[in-house]
Design a protein around this nucleic acid. Structure first.
Lengths: 360, 360
DNA sequence: CTGTTAGCGCGTTCAG
DNA sequence: CTGAACGCGCTAACAG
């Protein structure tokens, strides 16, 4: 029974949405009765409920959440603040989060921090304004960002961050052990006999990257190897995450050194793929003359030629854990001091460090 | 001046948020005056405004949007419904949308359709419930999906779809000319002398793919070439979009034919990259023995070896256009019958169809 | 310029 | 089982 809709020829004018009173009138009862029938709260005779439900459907009735929230009802929506959307990390994370949230009957809204801290603040405030019941924040940690988060926390909304430890007693955190992942993959390179190992994609802005770089240095140190400053390269102004371009440039720089590295660890898989392309373009054999490893285990990494050795950080798992912690806070199951959870990373060895590579 | 926050040791208990009345009381005025001071509507003496603003800051006051909306205020939030988040298409689209929305001072919320139509419906209804002022829908077109959209349209919320023509008089649409893009790239392959050209990633579910496949067939037909059924391969149950795996499988199938194609057009770049890896794994020279083209122009496509020939569909541009149309509807600038806009696609020629490739 | 009144749509509370 | 009154936080429309 398709109804006439007042749009397209009427511009933004719209018939006012049906209210509970309208439904009640049509069903021949009073608003309160309709409310009870619809929400199954309190009693209502079967017969009345049917009439009400029919009327509701006919009027295309949707309860006005604003009015509900106004009375301080439970808020079954969660806000997710992401750094950007182009990042496979975001995709997997949301995957894990949604799995938990969907099951629990919550709706998730996503906002993007995008370029700057101001956008992030605007998005977070918007979440607060729209009365989400909890916040999952996966943006990158900067000191400025922390201030914003603390401000938001003052509104009393439970917050769980992912991959971003916040120095605030009211915020729970889930993150991967980037240090250990980097340590493991560099140790893997060392165990293959490499002694000159470069790092592509450094950036002082990004907490993850710094921890990965520390892991890189620690592994070298433990093996008694050196990491000359010139072996660490990165774009001057680091963006949200290193890109193919950065990796390409980085490899070009490293390969141009008089004593160039024989292996390279790139901050993430995008950079690694860019580096791989650069190396092949220069005619270097991979991994024969240049071994390359990345970080993140993006799906495409298994389909480069040669496939990419990388570090898996079980992002989906982190998403699930974070969502569960948040729900716990929201529903009062989880109490007490802030929780900090860390997930270990796993090494994924493929052809870019071991084997024939794509040239004899 | 960091305040004590009641969380962490108190579970979900929270101090009630400050209300306008609280602010007014602290400033020694009445609520209405505070409202005027904060919203710059009506008059308020400079002195009073300062006092009110100070009080507001002190109490960490945020106007209760629910209460505002309840009065039927303008809704400066927009909902974006995406098919999934792992898709570079989504990223670029949101990029374009945000550019317009940010400038106009609107906030964007994103929801994901994910697996099924039910999630999509839930997300859309949640948007309606949260009283977003407009909806941008970029999920894939299926008949079931259309029904849901029509239902939502009945609420009188302006809707613009991207890449998905909807048979409803109340929904505006923006999309790329997939047919033409496919036609052009296949024509490019033909112009290189290829006579046996395969298609990887067919799926009856996906409208875009079908249009790309039609373009592929049209190009062959126009050149007087044949497209045997066995040259078109795809996973039986097609997911949201074809993946590296699908491309890999597809190429394996095509390469195994007694009279195998000399060129392949993959439904998207992910499939193309999978196909590329398969071809190289089989020892085929690309493009010498097997030319490969994709669709979408994802960033990584320029960094495969050889780099990928593909079709650019200016997704960001589509996002901008869609957002502008939506704002036009929301603000009453755009009136009248539904608008349908189509953006042309552009051919991007790289090494996977032309040149030496990555082997001599 | 500032204060008062009323009502948005709903659910809670208390009477029928 | 059903109805009537009240108030959530805010602002439009009137006074003062």
């Amino acid at each position: 029974m398709q109804q006439q809709v007042p749009f397209g020829n009427a511009g933004p004018v719209r018939k006012k949405a049906a209210t509970l009173a309208d439904v009640a009138r049509l069903a021949g009862v009073v608003a309160m009765t309709a409310s009870r029938a619809i929400n199954r709260s309190g009693y209502a005779s079967e017969e009345v409920r049917e009439r009400v439900l029919k009327a509701a459907k006919e009027l295309n009735y949707r309860p006005n959440l604003m009015a509900r929230y106004l009375k301080g009802q439970s808020r079954r929506a969660v806000g997710i603040m992401l750094p950007d959307i182009a990042n496979p990390f975001s995709a997997e994370l949301v995957d894990g989060i949604k799995e938990v949230l969907d099951k629990a009957g919550y709706t998730a809204f996503i906002a993007l921090a995008g370029a700057g801290i101001e956008q992030e603040r605007a998005g977070l405030e918007s979440f607060v304004d729209h009365r989400v019941g909890g916040l999952l924040v996966a943006t990158r940690g900067t000191l400025m960002g922390d201030e914003v988060l603390k401000e938001v926390a003052r509104h009393g909304i439970p917050i769980v961050t992912v991959g971003r430890p916040v120095k605030s007693a009211t915020v729970d955190c889930v993150s991967a052990n980037h240090w250990q992942g980097a340590f493991d993959v560099v140790t893997h390179l060392i165990s293959l006999g490499h002694k000159r190992i470069g790092f592509i994609g450094i950036s002082a802005e990004d907490a993850h990257t710094l921890r990965r770089h520390h892991g890189y240095k620690a592994a070298l140190e433990k093996a008694g190897l050196k990491a000359p400053a010139e072996y660490t390269v990165g774009p001057a102004m680091a963006p949200a995450f290193a890109t193919q371009e950065d990796g390409y440039e980085g490899m070009m720089r490293l390969a141009g050194l008089k004593k160039r590295p024989t292996a390279v660890f790139a901050r993430n898989d995008f950079a690694a793929i860019g580096a791989l392309h650069a190396a092949l373009t220069l005619g270097l054999k991979v991994p024969g003359e240049m071994a390359i490893a990345g970080f993140d285990d993006i799906p495409l990494g298994a389909y480069t030629t040669p496939p990419l050795t990388t570090v898996m950080q079980s992002t989906k798992e982190q998403g699930k854990m974070a969502a569960e912690m948040l729900l716990g806070r929201m529903e009062g199951r989880l109490k007490g001091a802030r929780k900090l959870k860390t997930v270990e990373c796993g090494l994924v060895v493929r052809g870019s460090t071991v084997g024939r590579g794509n040239r004899e």
